[in-house]
């Protein structure tokens, strides 16, 4: 769905995006993960033809960008950075105007506009908002409206930049369920985020950027590979430590971390020694470990006087 080769963007002397090779496949829920200022938004803008690449190639839905951007974008729904709307108009009017501005497609025609507007407002939970102008909306409501406008054209591909910004936990959950549902129905989702938990819960594939470079790109399960160590929870931790002497590298209450053994071997020996095994599994890396291992500080961290350390949050 999205492929880039050596995608590079330079703003004056600043290299914002540095030879990024993205590969988003059909049906993916792709999480584009990186600290603030790492080039996520610039990449998203390039994918949508808003910002022109300095070097490199982009293909979205099989077509080159920005050359055929006009053929591609009707099939793409997007949320770029913040949602935006005409503040003096209502949500419904905003969506109608936006829809009327662009070309109709088979799935999103002029005739079913009213129906589609109603549908997306329903989907994001703004159905009963009425005629209030957007300037009276809360941050979360605006975010919902932004997502609604991305869904309006019934797109095959959704490109969402920080889709859960400003939403409360309840809202985040709703949107997550909405996106998973859309994905099941065949929509590919590409979302950027600096929230690890969000990506971990929603995405099937992950790309990690740091300072404009793509430092990792793989299926979520692949990234969270096994560490080679084994986790067990036992009824008698002291006994277990004595039994598995030398293999235990960590202990937290009744939880033990074992090295140099496997789940099968460890459980077999514990069971033989009549120590109850409540849980046993190979240890997996958390996404946080992976990402923090790959990335540096966020670019908005200013060490010294002005301490701003808004980094990747677990």
């Amino acid at each position: 769905m999205i492929t880039t080769h050596g995608l590079t963007k330079r703003f004056g002397r600043v290299l914002a995006v540095d030879s990024v090779d993205l590969d988003v496949r059909e049906g993916d829920r792709y999480g584009f993960l990186g600290p603030n200022g790492s080039g996520k938004t610039t990449t998203v803008r390039m994918l949508l033809g808003l910002v022109y690449a300095t070097r490199g190639e982009i293909e979205v839905l099989g077509e080159p960008i920005p050359k055929h951007v006009r053929d591609v974008l009707p099939e793409v729904g997007a949320l770029v950075e913040n949602p935006a709307a005409y503040p003096h108009l209502s949500a419904r009017t905003n969506l109608t105007i936006l829809d009327a501005s662009g070309p109709p497609t088979d799935r999103a025609s002029r005739r079913n506009r009213r129906q589609r507007v109603g549908e997306v407002l329903e989907q994001v939970g703004l159905a009963s908002i009425g005629r209030r102008p957007v300037k009276t909306y809360s941050l979360g409501m605006r975010q919902r409206l932004g997502i609604a406008s991305a869904l309006l054209g019934r797109p095959r591909l959704l490109v969402l930049d920080e889709p859960t910004n400003g939403l409360d936990p309840q809202g985040i959950r709703e949107i997550r369920e909405l996106l998973v549902g859309l994905n099941r129905a065949g929509t590919t989702i590409f979302m950027s985020s600096h929230l690890l938990a969000e990506v971990e819960q929603l995405c099937t594939r992950v790309g990690v950027v740091d300072r404009g470079r793509l430092v990792a790109q793989a299926a979520l399960t692949e990234l969270r590979g096994e560490t080679g160590r084994t986790l067990v929870r036992v009824g008698d931790p002291a006994g277990a430590v004595g039994l598995l002497d030398g293999r235990v590298v960590g202990r937290d209450g009744d939880r033990l971390v074992l090295a140099g053994t496997t789940v099968a071997e460890a459980t077999a020996r514990l069971v033989q020694a009549r120590i109850a095994v409540h849980e046993a599994a190979p240890e997996r890396r958390t996404l946080e470990d992976v990402v923090l291992g790959l990335t540096s500080h966020g670019s908005d961290r200013v060490d010294g006087d002005g301490h701003r350390t808004e980094q990747l949050q677990p």
Binding site: R45, L48, G49, V76, A78, V80, E81, A85, L98, S149
Partner: peptide
């Protein structure tokens, strides 16, 4: 300024 420019362009409006 309102940010609607980018949404118009990705709508897409040439």
């Amino acid at each position: 300024t309102t940010g609607t420019l980018r949404y118009l362009l990705v709508r897409p409006v040439g």
